[in-house]
């Protein structure tokens, strides 16, 4: 246990770096997946290409992608950009499908009503479809967050420091405590992401908690119009 206390500063630093490597691609990936998913729904012809194509990206082994990045980007082998870009690709791969499903969860009658009120396409997407898509989107995002936290740990194999370092290092040194720190750190980090996304969802969907009282109970009286 003293090992943990002695290395607390390092552990904190690695955890912060791990959080950034997983979190920033999550945000950027969401920003990319939203328009892609929206396009896929708007253009049924190319939808299989967008959804299938992005899904295929997720099947690339992470280590291969990390190693491939410097070749594609022309970056240095230990540059953090490699990890950021690779993680963004994975996020997009997971989220495009979620965005399509989330937009599909918006009742068609609601979307039609928005059009009938005079919303243009983009206005409708931002003001009506996106807010209503939040619950489905949030569950997709939580899966992506956990996935990101675990994939990032692989980056230690190419020497980029984060919590995964304790897994590889502890394994090489046959030091279970260090491996344990790596595992617990990753689990806690994933939990933090999960809670943060749940919190954001909660804040964005007061309407989903309103429940259906059906106008009974404490509802004010319906008054006859005069």
């Amino acid at each position: 246990m003293t090992w943990v206390w002695e290395h607390l500063g390092d552990i904190g630093g690695y955890a912060a770096s791990h959080a950034l490597l997983a979190g920033i691609p999550l945000v950027v990936g969401l920003a990319l997946a939203l328009p892609l998913g929206w396009l896929a729904r708007r253009l049924p012809r190319v939808a299989p290409l967008i959804v299938g194509g992005s899904g295929l990206l997720y099947t690339i082994p992470s280590l291969a992608l990390f190693i491939l990045m410097p070749l594609v980007l022309g970056s240095k082998i230990l540059d953090a950009i490699n990890v950021y870009v690779a993680m963004t690709i994975y996020t997009v791969a997971l989220l495009v499908r979620s965005v399509v499903d989330a937009l599909g969860s918006v009742p068609e009658s609601t979307a039609l009503a928005a059009t009938a009120m005079g919303y243009r396409r983009l206005g409708r997407a931002l003001a009506v479809e996106l807010p209503l898509a939040v619950p489905v989107l949030a569950s997709g995002l939580r899966v992506a967050a956990v996935s990101n936290v675990s994939i990032v740990s692989v980056a230690s194999l190419i020497g980029y420091p984060q919590l995964g370092y304790y897994l590889t290092d502890g394994y090489q040194r046959s030091f279970p405590l260090e491996i344990g720190v790596g595992i617990v750190g990753c689990v806690l980090l994933a939990l933090v992401f999960d809670l943060a996304i749940r919190g954001a969802e909660w804040a964005l969907t007061p309407w989903a908690r309103a429940g259906s009282s059906g106008g009974s109970g404490r509802a004010p009286k319906e008054v006859a119009a005069t």
């Binding site: 009658s109 609601t110 039609l112 009503a113 928005a114 059009t115 009938a116 009120m117 005079g118 919303y119 243009r120 009506v128 807010p131 209503l132 969907t205 309407w207």
Partner: peptide, 21 residues
Amino acid sequence: EAELRRGIGYVIQHAGLFPHR
């Protein structure tokens, strides 16, 4: 289209209200 629709009231079965507003 959009301006035309803003000038026409539209009511449907089940009201089609926006659940999030």
